[in-house]
């Protein structure tokens, strides 16, 4: 049997999360096929075919798949599922939107946000915002899972090239239609892939002050993150939110500035290698998990820190 990994991409570039999903799939020690669903996505197909450890790239390139909407993508996946014992997608908004739909169509359960694949049918996944870990065995004949990127090594690029196989299925989507996409512009590294993340919370006080976080992140070559409070206060857009309901990150260095450390936030960053907390409240829960804590006024600390790194 083989594993099917669903590629995430924008028709031009493969997302780094797909490399992580292939990395996760490789722990099953089965041949790996990658499915690319899209439109005019030849560049993505080329990129996928050079990812290490891939057996075959299945390509569904058709205008009906341009925006990879769940309704017809899920049906397409069920049509080719017969050959695969496992179907894996990255635990991103793309994978989370799509894979449960596939699972229901196949009448099987699904394992969400897997952090460890122990063997062919047993995985570990966090529950209760990461405050507990469940070891779960699937009894299904076909095992579907989304894998958490920060928990797996990315598959590398290789000199070899996997075979490409074109699928001619064109499944129309009469249920939903793409209208528009508003992307958040950023020249900084991707939040989920960054080596350093600097996050700001409500204590920054305003959108203007949030620039201090961006300045420190730029000095460190890192990405900017935020707590939900900072997002809700309008300091920064929601795709920078770190936490249970936002992005899950595991960088080498995570600097939390003016973030108290609610469990929902900790769920998104507590696997960082080194955590630094800067907060005026010495009793803030963030200090319980921080490797280095600095108590004080962030408006005095941040400029000094920006100057000295």
């Amino acid at each position: 049997m083989t594993v099917l990994v669903i590629a995430e991409h924008d028709n031009h570039r493969l997302s780094g999360e797909t490399h992580k999903a292939v990395g996760a799939a490789s722990s099953l020690k089965l041949p790996i096929d990658v499915l690319v669903i899209g439109y005019q996505c030849q560049a993505v197909v080329e990129e996928v075919s050079h990812v290490e450890g891939i057996n075959q790239v299945l390509v569904a390139d058709n205008s009906v798949y341009q925006h990879q909407l769940a309704e017809n993508s899920a049906t397409l996946i069920t049509e080719i599922a017969a050959d695969h014992s496992h179907i894996i997608a990255p635990a991103t908004t793309f994978g989370k939107n799509l894979l449960p739909r596939v699972a229901a169509l196949l009448d099987v359960g699904m394992l969400s946000d897997v952090v460890t694949i122990e063997n062919a049918d047993t995985v570990v996944r966090p529950i209760y915002a990461g405050n507990a870990l469940a070891r779960v065995r699937s009894k299904d004949s076909k095992i579907l899972m989304t894998t958490r990127g920060s928990a797996f090594e990315a598959a590398q690029m290789a000199d070899t090239q996997a075979e490409q196989k074109l699928l001619d299925a064109s499944i129309a989507n009469t249920l939903s239609e793409f209208v528009e996409r508003q992307a958040s512009e950023s020249e900084r590294p991707d939040l989920t892939a960054a080596r350093v993340v600097v996050s700001g919370g409500r204590a920054l006080g305003s959108k203007d002050n949030f620039a201090l976080i961006e300045k420190l992140a730029d000095k460190l070559g890192g990405a900017v993150g935020a707590s939900r409070a900072a997002v809700d206060a309008g300091f920064i857009s929601n795709d920078y939110q770190v936490g249970q309901t936002g992005k899950i990150v595991a960088p080498e260095l995570y600097i939390a500035v003016g973030i108290s450390g609610a469990i929902q936030h900790l769920a998104g960053m507590k696997d960082a290698k080194v955590i630094v907390a800067i907060n005026s409240d010495a009793d803030a829960p963030i200090f319980e998990i921080a490797d280095y804590g600095l108590v004080g006024d962030l408006f005095e600390i941040l400029p000094e820190l920006i100057d000295s790194v």
């Binding site: 099987v108 359960g109 394992l111 047993t122 966090p126 529950i127 990461g130 405050n131 507990a132 870990l133 469940a134 070891r135 779960v136 065995r137 699937s138 009894k139 299904d140 507590k270 955590i275 630094v276 010495a282 200090f287 319980e288 998990i289 921080a290 490797d291 280095y292 804590g293 600095l294 108590v295 600390i301 000094e304 820190l305 000295s308």
Partner: peptide, 25 residues
């Protein structure tokens, strides 16, 4: 479709230290 074999507490982070200044940090 699934069986929960075990529910475990996540690994605890070892206690950190408080530093007193930016330069020490």
């Amino acid at each position: 479709h699934q069986e929960i074999i075990e529910v475990m507490a996540p690994a605890q982070r070892s206690g950190g230290v408080k530093v007193s200044s930016v330069s020490e940090l």
